Amino acid sequence: MSAFSLKMDIAENRFFNGENSPLFSRQQAQQARHFHQKIAGYQPTPLVAMNELAALFGVHKILVKDESQRFGLNAFKMLGGAYAIARLLCEKYQLDINEFSFETLKSSIKEKMTFATTTDGNHGRGIAWAAQKLGQNAVIYMPKGSAQERVDAILRLGAECIVTDMNYDDTVRFTMQTAQEKGWEVVQDTAWEGYTKIPTWIMQGYATLADEAVEQMAAMGIARPTHVFLQAGVGAMAGGVLGYLADVYGARNLHSAIVEPELADCIYRSGVKGKIVNVGGSMATIMAGLACGEPNPLGWDILRNCATQFISCQDAVAALGMRVLGNPPGNDPRVISGESGAVGLGVLAAVYFHPQREALMHKLKLDGHSVVLTISTEGDTDIQHYREVVWEGKHPAAR
């Protein structure tokens, strides 16, 4: 095998205290999952065991949660958006979320509502899907540089989709201002002062995938993972999932690494400093779903308390992960994973090929007993770019 060095900065979390959050517990996750189970077409997404890849990389198990198969939407994000919209409407119309159905809710809505959000693609698609199911309107704003394929996927769900000339975080502010002026409901996966309830529901919705994974690992005879690699944009998915896992296993019993693109590594920088640090600029990473410069304070609190390490890496790490998952060794199943979905596995692959492999394995506490859980949060949501990376060799690992 070749040896090559990809840029990965790994920082220990000096502010770790292992404190759980009651907002992101197993109980909250199972309530959200109970809601998702009542949606037509629900089934747990696969938890794939990459046994031959694990043997090659020198660990006991590599497990990949494949979210490309979530409700036909090719990504996990609807778990949060649909749950938050349902909770919002149940609160508005005094309905019980435990008795929820789209049909009941649809008949209860007296006036047509408009849901607005900012997205890099997958979250907006989830909001558009939920609005369509409920017969409501959705207006989705996307930052500059958004792929046309992601825009078209939202338009096909009947939503209005507007690409701005701003980065993600500035687009969020514009969405908030516009929605306030027009009386729309904002369903955003980040929080700020005075806006925490809906982001909390979104993060609780994301934990459905973690509850499924814990159940699936138990069915495989796996008591617990030793490691979890979670990618972060604003940190909502990473915070919601890590909060759940910390409640189930204990944060001190889990080596958790939060992975970001170096061009949008606000969580990494916050982790180094111990308080929220924002990143500006265009954040032109291939990991579009992670191109966010301002941490979600709700997610940040969990990550500061419970994450073991923070990792900032170059785009080629994600591209490597896409290729490895799409072309695994031996009889391992193939996973189609997009740019933001593959970066966790990409870190493992980059460690394997690195000239200082043993030192990096030691730093990440990886060995022959390690059971590593990664989340492939999206499939090929931008098919053209997926093929440019996997077929044509865009963002090569070695030059």
Rank of each mutant, 00 (worst) to 15 (best):
S2V: 11
M8Q: 09
N13Y: 02
R14P: 02
F16E: 02
S25F: 11
S25Q: 11
A32T: 07
R33A: 09
H34D: 11
Q37W: 07
K38L: 14
I39D: 12
G41A: 11
L47V: 10
V48T: 14
E52Q: 14
G58P: 03
M78W: 01
L79F: 13
A82E: 12
A84T: 14
C90T: 15
L95M: 15
I97M: 15
F100Q: 06
S101Y: 12
S107R: 14
K110S: 14
K110G: 13
A116R: 01
T117S: 08
T119C: 10
D120V: 00
N122E: 02
R125K: 15
G126Y: 00
A128N: 06
A128Q: 07
A131H: 04
Q132Y: 08
G135P: 03
Q136R: 05
M142K: 10
G145F: 05
G145V: 08
Q148N: 11
E149M: 04
I154W: 00
V163A: 03
V163Q: 02
V172R: 07
Q177L: 04
Q177Y: 05
Q177G: 00
Q188S: 11
T190M: 04
T190S: 14
A191H: 12
G194K: 11
Y195N: 07
I198C: 13
W201I: 07
G205L: 13
G205K: 14
A210W: 09
A213W: 05
M217S: 14
A223M: 07
R224N: 10
H227K: 04
V228M: 00
L230G: 03
A232I: 08
M237N: 11
M237F: 15
A238D: 12
G239P: 09
V241K: 01
A246F: 00
H255N: 05
H255C: 01
S256I: 00
E260N: 03
P261K: 05
P261V: 06
A264E: 10
Y268V: 06
S270F: 07
G271P: 06
G271S: 03
K275T: 02
I276G: 01
I276R: 02
V279R: 01
G280T: 00
M283V: 09
G289A: 12
G289Y: 00
L298K: 10
I311E: 05
I311W: 04
Q314G: 11
V317D: 09
A318K: 08
A318C: 10
A319S: 14
G321V: 09
L325P: 04
P333K: 15
S337T: 05
E339I: 04
G344R: 10
V347H: 03
L348M: 14
V351R: 10
V351A: 10
V351P: 03
Y352P: 02
H354I: 08
H362L: 05
K363S: 03
D367N: 12
H369M: 07
H369E: 13
V371S: 07
V371R: 11
V372Q: 01
L373A: 06
T377C: 09
E378H: 08
E378Y: 08
T381M: 00
H385L: 13
V390S: 13
P396T: 13
A398V: 15
R399E: 13
